[in-house]
Write a protein that binds this DNA or RNA. Structure first.
Lengths: 141, 141
DNA sequence: GTCAGTGCAAACCCTTTGCAGAAAG
DNA sequence: CTTTCTGCAAAGGGTTTGCACTGAC
């Protein structure tokens, strides 16, 4: 997935459309993860932002808070593959993942290539949040 | 899933068959998780064992180490659904999970009821470790 | 002035590790 | 004796929280 470029105004609009107050820090965080087009953890993102020359200071706590908010509002997707940390995926189209447990690498698989059939009926009083498929692979030791 | 009962000798045999040296502590841990037939975290298991009257002392570190070993040797299965903690599943038959993000409840779904089609070819030099499907549901707030 | 948002540091939780002592053969 | 395993307590890493400050309306 190739990097894209966004103006701050575009990001700001996107946030507003998702019911998020577009503060300077939130715009930086959102813009960074969307432009990187990669699976990043909060810590990854924080370090990238720290090294931007034109950065406006963004604290680690704010990165965590913002990513949580973005995930909750559907701007990005949380991927829980590695028990050690959560990564965020700017790809919000339905898709699944191949996770290399040795290297930590995470690869997208389009939902129209790999599908789930036979969805069980949901427990009473619950609504569907999403279906995650994770293909775990291992590199030779 | 109803609780089962095992003799220590049965558990011991099981461990040996899986290439695990059957120490007293490992037998207690293994027996407890197999008899409970439930998804348990290391902490859960530790607390259950702590309250057993006939227990042989087992430390938290040993519970973690033993569960890791059991998972690695295929006696139990690791389930990574909640980013906050790993749970262990004594059901090693192929199956998937419904996870309630509100309550933390985790339900098994037989693999012959829900299936994945269109598995991607694995990255070069990797071998398949497993395929996890997690249906996330939410209870109303 | 009000209220949401931010930064910092401390707190938290789950998990792993270092190391000395215990157990097993 | 040697090797493996265990227990304890401390460290570790990711994430969250408390609280005072800042900034926007």
């Amino acid at each position: 997935m190739k990097p894209k470029h966004f103006t701050n105004a575009e990001i700001s609009d996107l946030l507003v459309r998702h019911d998020i107050n577009p503060t300077a820090q939130r715009v930086v965080v959102t813009r960074t993860i969307l432009e990187r087009c990669a699976h990043l953890s909060a810590e990854d993102l924080f370090q990238i932002i720290e090294q931007m020359p034109d950065r406006r200071g963004v604290s680690l706590a704010t990165v965590y808070n913002t990513l949580g908010l973005l995930a909750q509002k559907g701007v990005v997707r949380e991927v829980i593959a590695d028990p050690a940390k959560v990564v965020y995926d700017p790809n919000t189209a339905p898709h699944h993942h191949v996770y290399n447990v040795t290297t930590g690498e995470l690869i997208d698989v389009d939902a129209d290539r790999m599908q789930v059939s036979g969805m069980p009926s949901l427990p009473l009083g619950t609504s569907l949040e999403g279906v995650d498929v994770i293909v775990r692979v291992r590199s030779p030791s």
